[in-house]
Design a protein around this nucleic acid. Structure first.
Lengths: 123, 123
DNA sequence: CTTGACCCTCACACCAATGTCACAGTTTAT
DNA sequence: ATAAACTGTGACATTGGTGTGAGGGTCAAG
């Protein structure tokens, strides 16, 4: 199938499909006219890529194990676990930061509301 | 004081001080030679800016209320509360997203480890 | 007067996936 | 045959605070 069809089937923009190829995640054949020809498996492959992207992995990380996970169980691919663990640590750190900002904001919002209330009563 | 001193006192890079000015957060006087002259209050002002930035606010948001909070109690400045609330909502959303990724990663890590273990026992 | 330490402005780089043009060739349908 | 619908490459924009460097004034101490 050609790129437009793959895009329609997978819901991923043509731009992104070309980008994935540039990053080594897809390797469609080429027709003599230069058009990309994707195998029927490409659709699932694209969904797999999208899934890993949704976990916050970069195309570079994905490219390091995609060839393996497409042919095997994920658990079989040694490269995956350390990347997951590293990503989990990053996520954890980001959550910590956001939680601390959240507390800070909540405190200050509460303070402002309290302040307003006491000023209202005061009068 | 000149920019180098303010930078040293506040711990904020010269580059950032100039950027804050460009964004309307600081308005130092200028000497005839073009050098910026900061008042002694600038140090606290810069710390205030840094604090709001650490809450994840943009310079644009900060500029909308900085003039007020520098002269009044924060609770007095009407512009602050809606910005805090909006920011809190964003943070909340981001945390939700990260938490869902985190669960996903944890599940998959657990699965991989389980898989390895059962394969080990199997043999 | 010269050296070194400041200061100035302007501008590109960054991070990374995606959107969006511009411009051009190909195929398909009318 | 011509227009519409695809496809190709290339390149810039996005986000926003900060780093960094070029190229050039200013000033104080030796």
């Amino acid at each position: 199938m050609k790129i437009g069809e793959l895009s329609a089937r997978s819901g991923v923009s043509i731009r992104s499909l070309r980008y994935y190829e540039e990053q080594g995640l897809l390797s469609p054949l080429r027709h003599q006219n230069g058009y990309r020809e994707y195998s029927p498996f490409a659709e699932e492959q694209v969904r797999t890529i999208q899934f890993y992207l949704s976990l916050g992995l970069t195309t570079q990380q994905i490219s390091s194990f995609l060839h393996c996970v497409l042919k095997n169980e994920e658990a079989f691919c040694q490269e995956v676990l350390p990347i997951y663990q590293q990503k989990l640590a990053e996520i954890h750190e980001q959550i910590q930061l956001l939680e601390s900002i959240k507390s800070n904001l909540e405190d200050r919002i509460r303070f402002i509301l309290d302040e307003r209330e006491s000023n209202t009563k005061e009068k």
